[in-house]
Amino acid sequence: MPREAEISVNEREFIQQALRENTRLDGRAFDTFRPLELTFGDEYGVADVKLGKTRVIARISVEVTAPLPERKFDGVFQIVTEFSPMASPAFEVGRPTDAEVILARILEKAIRRSNALDTESLCIIAGLKVFHLRADVHIIDHDGGLIDASCIAVMAALQHFRRPDVIVEGEKATVLSVREREPIPLSILHTPLCVTFSYYEEGEIFLVDANLAEEQVRQGEIIITMNRHGEVCQIAKYGGATVDALSLLNCNNVALEKVKDMSKFIQERLEADAKRRDAGGLMAELSAENDR
């Protein structure tokens, strides 16, 4: 099994020493994210997130299937994550590592279980036909902060995605193509976003958005998922060194601030993309004139 190259003793010592002197290797403050970039593809529902050197692409696709027998009125929503060897030599296809299982579980809890997407709106005919929405998360480059980046990518892609319209006549449903009818945005109930805190020095130092080297040195992590309304969707601290209960609560406050900033950023990017796509209203689109 390939393994992530272990960080050297000297490097480890250096990072820890620097943290004790209130410095991070890349000069960021302890509670700042790396520069975040978000671009959308030409198709609806493709979001490309760059967080420093980490890069994640999320893609939403949809098909029509029969609903699960116990959930007749709900569409199906699935998040699929796969770590490809392209991102890091430590990743292997078909053998999920612990990190991969945790990423999948966190996204599941943060986005699916917190009902960020209204699955009832994906129902076409109750008990017979529903939309099956699939979010594929591709890790393109790994330099730490995979969970945060993946969560941003999935939420941005969901907000960007448009599903085709349907006409229902009795038992018959017709899916209309993009040319026939303007596709419809999904109904998103709230936007949960993850903030990962890495801690050092027995819970004395907390870092937001650690990069890969900092992740390898840390004593433990706390992943907090929130939306900008101040609702905590998920908290996960899987063991590691202990942390005082009060600093955990403090993390909540920092997370809220970060989530508000990120939500605003995603919103801005979505608006910019919408403006780019808007060719100047219906009249411009229907006009026969061209540049010739």
């Binding site: 809890k109 279980r113 917190s114 009902n115 706390i222 929130m226 101040g230 609702e231 905590v232 969707c233 998920q234 908290i235 996960a236 601290k237 899987y238 063991g239 590691g240 202990t242 942390v243 005082d244 209960a245 955990l248 609560l249 909540n252 809220l256």
Partner: peptide
């Protein structure tokens, strides 16, 4: 000294 903290459902921040 908290070692494990896991929450899986949506709740207001003040209640935590």
């Amino acid at each position: 000294a908290v070692s494990v903290l896991i929450m899986e459902s949506r709740v207001r921040m003040e209640k935590v």
